[in-house]
């Protein structure tokens, strides 16, 4: 793996904001004393007058962003997922979601790859929270390139968007000329016939690794990258489920309410198919390096491979 380029998705976020700053004079960036960590400091450096540090007050930051949006600005606000989606859930719901304001929430440090800071900061619940809000788009990019494209697409889209980024460096997998990002459109990264692995975020590259390992055992796995959890590309998932007859979901998020639940919601109504959900199994995380935690919680290639093998038995 050492030859594969690894970059944290939050890096892609910071870079994309700087690019967008030139394109949209009405784009503003808000942060809550985490500009260095969320990478909005890059924008701050380029456009100091359009970077608003709200201090450690996430709920107020959401409201300020909402107020800015009513005047025609495009606010991107950032914090850790725990605070943007968790602490400020009701502000996002009532001040952004209900009036359907054009606010983009760039939440970094999602999931257990926060690592050493431990469970208090490892948000495994944000996708579940955000996707219950009517009209909210929920995006969890797989790598730096997808992040950049997702941020640009979000700026062009009129309405609230939740973007989920990670702290840890992850493999760059979308570095190819055919790559195209469209909100709500899944991407088949690898075709297969025996099982469908639907993955999001950092679990996409791990699922590709797992598919390689499965292929060595003679199992043909289809791998779908679902960067947009809401609106979900049901058509693509259902078509693949009908083809393979078995679906595995993989996400760095609780198995309750995230991608796995969204896929089950769609399949149970429209194409009942056995589903195995891989994620955080209704437990809090703990302190350790991201790599150690990903392995322990079975979200690396090996963990996904083992889970798929067990499911197919």
């Amino acid at each position: 793996m050492s030859e594969i380029k690894k970059v944290a998705t939050r890096e892609g976020y910071g870079k994309a904001l700087v690019e967008l700053g030139a394109k949209y004079p009405n784009l503003v960036v808000l942060d809550a004393d985490l500009a260095a960590a969320t990478k909005t400091s890059m924008f701050q450096k380029a456009y100091p007058d359009r970077h608003i540090d709200c201090g450690i007050a996430e709920c107020n930051m959401i409201g300020i962003a909402a107020g800015l949006a009513t005047t025609g600005k495009i606010p991107f606000l950032s914090s850790f997922a725990m605070f943007a989606a968790g602490r400020a859930f009701e502000q996002v719901r009532n001040s952004v979601g209900y009036p359907h304001l054009n606010v983009k929430i760039g939440a970094s440090h999602a999931g257990i790859t926060v690592g050493e800071d431990g469970a208090s900061h490892q948000c495994n619940e944000d996708i579940a929270l955000m996707r219950t809000i009517p009209g909210m788009v929920v995006i969890n990019p797989a790598d730096e390139i997808e992040t950049s494209e997702a941020v640009k697409a979000s700026a062009a889209y009129e309405g609230p968007v939740y973007l989920r980024f990670g702290r840890a460096a992850v493999p760059v997998i979308n570095d190819n000329p055919e790559y195209k990002f469209e909100i709500g459109k899944g991407i088949v990264l690898r075709e297969g016939t025996d099982v469908t692995i639907v993955a999001t975020g950092i679990c996409v590259s791990a699922s590709l690794e797992a598919a390689d390992m499965l292929a060595a055992d003679g199992i043909s796995a289809e791998v779908i990258n679902i960067h947009t959890i809401k609106p979900l590309d049901e058509e693509l998932i259902i078509a693949s489920a009908k083809k393979t007859g078995k679906v595995v979901t993989a996400e760095e998020h609780s198995v309750i309410g995230g991608l796995g639940s969204a896929v089950c919601d769609a399949l149970s109504e429209k194409a009942p198919t056995p589903v195995c959900k891989i994620g955080i199994n209704d437990v809090f995380g703990e302190s350790a390096s991201a790599a150690v935690l990903i392995h322990k919680y079975g979200l690396d290639g090996e963990g996904i491979y083992n889970k798929v093998k067990g499911f197919l038995k």
Binding site: G63, I64, G67, L68, T70, S95
Partner: peptide, 25 residues
């Protein structure tokens, strides 16, 4: 109606955002 509100404590933040936008522009 310039802002949806009703969940107490939230409207004032939106008003601050509007005032900030006025200053920025």
């Amino acid at each position: 109606i310039d802002m949806s509100s009703g969940s107490l404590g939230q409207g004032v933040s939106a008003a601050v955002g509007m005032a900030l936008a006025g200053k920025m522009d």
